[in-house]
Write a protein that binds this DNA or RNA. Sequence first.
RNA 1: GCUGGGGUAGCUCAGUCGGUAGAGCAGGGGACUGAAAAUCCCCGUGUCGGGAGUUCAAUUCUCUCCCCCAGCA
Length: 305
Amino acid sequence: MTLEDVVCIVGPTGTGKTAAALGLAERFGGGVINYDSRQVYRGVPLVTAQPTSEEQTQCPHWLYGFMEPVQAIDAGLFSHLAESAIGEAVQRGLLPLLVGGTGLYLDALLYGLAAIPDVPSMIRQSIQARYDTMGGEALHAELQTIDPQYAAKIHPNDRQRITRALEVFETTGRVLSSWHAEQNPQPRFNHLKIGLHMDLDELTPRLALRIDMMLKGGAVAEMKAAYQKTPMPNAPGWTGIGCMELIEYIRDRMTLEQAKSLWLRRTRAYAKRQLTWFKRDPEIHWFDPADVAAMGDLVAKYFKR
RNA sequence: GCUGGGGUAGCUCAGUCGGUAGAGCAGGGGACUGAAAAUCCCCGUGUCGGGAGUUCAAUUCUCUCCCCCAGCA
């Protein structure tokens, strides 16, 4: 069985991935599939920088704004959904263009995940509770005895990874590093990664400008309406940068100025983490974000289209 | 003008019973295998407002000057 061709557009937030994707879609007859963990949520298209409805009419789009804010998404669910979206696009004769910023989701999709079953919420909750009462040191020490290999890789303060490792062990009776070891790293698609490169100094003013544009475009009203429908500050859909700050403002816990400056700082820090993540990926071909023609030439050459 | 509180890292501040100083945030670097726009790790020399005095030694005590804040005039 031959692998499907897919183009992945990567890079930090705010570099113009949407524009590049639309350019490539036009040239090759493509369909855009989202791999951004926050743009899947309904009700906040502006704040999460989803493609506008105008942009979405230019070619078919998948996986934008379809989840309810109370629903949680994770790499496994995403990978599953994206796989079928790719299938649909191919069936329609379109070149799938994966666009987004969640590196983990892209890896999960391209290389697959270990077949770890879902963790029952009872188990998750009890481990969370133990972390709260006993602390990271104690649970890390516990992990050290059951899975020294994985424990060595993570820090006692890393609550998320420690509790994940323990809950997987409790659920499956197997240790996380053994699950990971059985994975085969074969790609599941014939993929080409195109990176839009921009360093932080250049990106920062663009991010600030984008926040201003979002606010001018009605971001507060959008968030207010969405929050009224789902008035839970901790809903999974509200964990995106921008949402959290605007909710604080809406709930009168912050001035708009405070919300704005926090929003920018966190966006910038996020962009930096993305840069770090993508920087180490040798598969990525880096481009000037504006040079869509050069990206297209590489796509043409690589896939002989 | 008077009284009180301040002037310490880019910002907000802690501290030194006298032996030249440290947190949070910001910033820089990094990790990342089912919460990932998450979670986490590493990196801190700065005329301790200026000047003078006491002292072996002052950012720390004293005096003085400058600046900020609050209150009183």
